[in-house]
């Protein structure tokens, strides 16, 4: 038996570097190597903090753009009793955009989760929620660019005085048909596709799917969303 006081024998070999299982990959790796990013996250516990902050950033940027547009529309209204509520309407628009962004985060995750069940996907919902949240990172950049475009458009906008509801609706529709606003939509479309690309690797890792099944899981609802929401605006 070994003497307890002597302790364990000391090895002369240099210490073997031990892998840190809790290492968090950088967000740059998410952009450049999303497959490795999510595989690195797979070993650790689920954390929703960073994804929530990313989605929140997307929501804030979208809220700024929504505030701008809501304020513009309210300023065009020349309806008695509506004076001075431009700020409030802008705030309502901003909060609505923020809540909608967070809500869409959950909805996207739920849709991916359900579709991936058809491919026998296995994995935690929270983990998938985190991975989808990470996938919102490109939309922060796209949101900033789109907001800058919207800001530039609003600054040069001559706001009419409208009293007829039909005229207001017509004018609002005409705003969306402005080339600057359409460019903003194209930018949003571009960065949504980039997010979808990241989501494919996130769903692949989080639901343990093949790359093909993950691509189907992600692209089908995303393309449906594009067809329903963005493309009609560009075509019009």
């Amino acid at each position: 038996m070994n003497d307890p006081e002597q302790g364990a024998p000391v090895s002369d070999a240099p210490p073997v570097p031990r892998r840190d299982e809790t290492r968090h990959p950088s967000l740059m790796e998410l952009v450049t190597n999303p497959r490795g990013f999510f595989e690195a996250l797979e070993a650790g516990p689920v954390s929703l903090g960073v994804p929530f902050l990313i989605v929140l950033a997307v929501g804030v940027v979208g809220a700024i753009a929504a505030y701008q547009m809501s304020s513009v529309v309210i300023r065009a209204l020349d309806i008695p009793g509506m004076e001075g509520i431009g700020g409030a309407m802008g705030a309502i628009g901003a909060i609505s955009a923020l809540i909608a962004t967070i809500l869409f985060w959950v909805i996207y995750t739920a849709v991916f989760y359900v579709i991936s069940m058809a491919f026998n996907g296995q994995g935690d919902f929270n983990r998938l929620l985190a991975y989808v949240g990470y996938g919102h990172l490109p939309q922060v950049i796209g949101g900033i660019v789109a907001t800058a475009l919207t800001w530039n458009f609003v600054l040069n906008l001559q706001i009419p005085s409208l009293t007829d509801p039909d005229a207001i609706q017509e004018w609002t529709q005409s705003l969306l048909q402005n080339p600057t606003m359409q460019l903003a939509s194209v930018v949003g479309l571009l960065f949504l596709l980039w997010s979808a690309n990241i989501w494919i690797f996130g769903v692949r890792t989080g639901r343990n799917l093949s790359t093909r099944d993950a691509a189907i899981t992600v692209l089908v609802p995303v393309l449906i969303y594009l067809l329903v929401s963005i493309v009609p605006t560009l075509v019009a």
Binding site: F153, N156, L157, Q158, N178, P179
Partner: peptide, 9 residues
């Protein structure tokens, strides 16, 4: 600077 559908990009 027109307030509608017009405008050059």
């Amino acid at each position: 600077d027109a307030g509608g559908a017009g405008g050059d990009l």
